[in-house]
């Protein structure tokens, strides 16, 4: 990556690198946090990072298909958020906790 005076415009690879950084941070939050809601938000962050990659490739290839994929990811994320948050509500109603370590019915 050439350093020095800032160029007038950045190459698409910088956008992809930013996408990788955001995805890594999402993975970090997913593994590190203990609150169900924060874990869920980390998943949304990862989906957003992938969307940035799609839109960047759409720009590089000068085609609209990347935007369509990005659109479908958004739709799936919206559906996932509705169902996931309903599950979180149900878990909290039954167990009065948001710690993922204490929700271990399926463990072993």
């Amino acid at each position: 990556m050439p350093l020095g005076p800032l160029p007038a415009a950045v190459p698409p690879s910088w956008y992809l690198t930013l996408s990788a950084i955001l995805f890594a941070l999402g993975v970090l939050g997913f593994l590190l946090r203990r609150n169900i809601i924060t874990v869920f938000m980390s998943i949304e962050l990862m989906l957003n990072a992938v969307n940035l990659s799609f839109v960047t490739f759409s720009y590089v290839l000068k085609r609209v298909d990347g935007h369509i994929f990005s659109f479908f990811v958004m739709v799936v994320a919206a559906a996932e958020a509705a169902v996931g948050l309903a599950i979180i509500l149900t878990v909290f109603k039954n167990r009065q906790t948001l710690e993922i370590d204490e929700v271990s019915t399926l463990k072993n």
Partner: peptide, 13 residues
């Protein structure tokens, strides 16, 4: 060595 991202270069979105 792909061309840098210029605002307005891609109008298909």
């Amino acid at each position: 060595a792909s061309a840098p991202v210029v605002f307005g270069a891609f109008q298909g979105g």
